[in-house]
Design a protein around this nucleic acid. Structure first.
Lengths: 214, 214
DNA sequence: CATGCTTGGATAGTGACACTTCCCAAGGAG
DNA sequence: CTCCTTGGGAAGTGTCACTATCCAAGCATG
């Protein structure tokens, strides 16, 4: 497949594909001669994943490169590889240590994890970018005066644990580690928005049921 | 409170506050004379909401203005006002009608809603930006080759419905419509990331339980 | 009264980012 | 031989959220 055909089949302009090649988001094609390169289905698939990361997930090019590097790193074990790829995804900004709300938020998150019995998450703690961004988000809620304590969050966390269990079940259906890690990344950037859309749709449905349509 | 004090208490530079005033995201203070204006706690609170919208929610300034316009529109009824504010929040891009994956996605979403018995959501249908963006997201998943059919989504949708019911319960604790709409907006831009962080944390927890920590 | 501060208002500039345009030299096709 | 396509790289574009600078008008202090 030539560059132009890759462009036609993906709907991405040749200039943009060349940009992705330059940025290392896409492996170069097999060079046939000085002016021709051959691309295959794996390039098309990767290109679509890159588009999903950048356009749907709004992942900056530099972060996307990091994520894909881990996805392609076959020297890592399954768990590490998965964690590395997901942790490279951009999170909410890190908490402001100065802010007193941050301390309160950290305490609340700790209390939440204890209540839930999430020992592994407590153990990983602030090492995890996810944990840090959760603290930062709770701190923002507190600063704005919205209640965001362990009691409020616990039922939501329990729902998310059920979702996560289902996520991992789905993930286990993949044969190769590469496929699995790729699906986990796409799940994080593509399925999370689906989940959010379902959430908002559910709000509309529930609101319409309670208060009527008009 | 002077501009400088508003800046000090919010941690937002005076230049940025002036920018927000110019962009109409923040109501002008009470003008004491040609060179002095007085701001109060409501300005501080609104400023923090604006920051949350823009920095955490990554809402473009123009959209934030739309959202806040609806939040402040006391002439609207509660339900309309809420819907208007939430629909003004940026969604995933609209579906590409040309794409055959879009048709498949629309059918799948329709099937999902029928399965779940979400009659109101079906009735509103493509009028809702949320519905349209869900179709676009499912289309992207399909195009990438990940299964995203009604059967896959249904259990997640059910979880989200439970979350939505809880959301509305929380919302009903607010007295005034303005407070309620404001909390709904902040819930959409701030609590959704919390939910997402909980989701990823739950994935880490569940993954650690299944496959160990290292 | 002089000095130095803050304020509101306006304009232009900045930096990040995701492209996109332009140009070139090397092939290959007719 | 000529025209078109290809890959590759440098430079430009558009957007966006600020940010820097300037200005004239107060107000506060010595």
């Amino acid at each position: 497949m030539r560059l132009s055909e890759l462009s036609a089949r993906s709907g991405v302009s040749t200039a943009t594909i060349k940009y992705y090649l330059r940025e290392g988001l896409l492996a170069p094609g097999r060079q046939l001669n000085a002016t021709t390169a051959d691309y295959d289905e794996t390039h098309l698939r990767r290109l679509r994943l890159v588009r999903a990361l950048i356009q749907v997930g709004r992942v900056p090019v530099a972060s996307a490169r990091e994520v894909l590097k881990h996805v392609d790193d076959e020297s890592l074990g399954r768990t590490i590889r998965l964690g590395a790829a997901l942790w490279a995804l951009p999170q909410a900004p890190d908490p402001d240590e100065e802010d007193p709300a941050t301390a309160a938020a950290a305490a609340e998150v700790e209390r939440l994890l204890r209540t839930l019995g999430w020992e592994a998450a407590r153990e990983i703690g602030a090492l995890s970018p996810v944990h840090r961004s959760l603290v930062a988000l709770v701190a923002t809620q507190i600063r704005l005066g919205y209640p965001c304590d362990a009691e409020t969050m616990a039922p939501y966390a329990e729902l998310m644990r059920q979702a996560a269990a289902r996520d991992l079940d789905r993930m286990e259906t993949y044969e190769s580690d590469t496929e699995m890690v790729e699906s986990a990344v796409s799940s994080a950037v593509l399925f999370e928005p689906v989940l959010r859309a379902l959430h908002r749709l559910a709000q509309e449905e529930e609101s319409a049921r309670r208060y009527g349509l008009e």
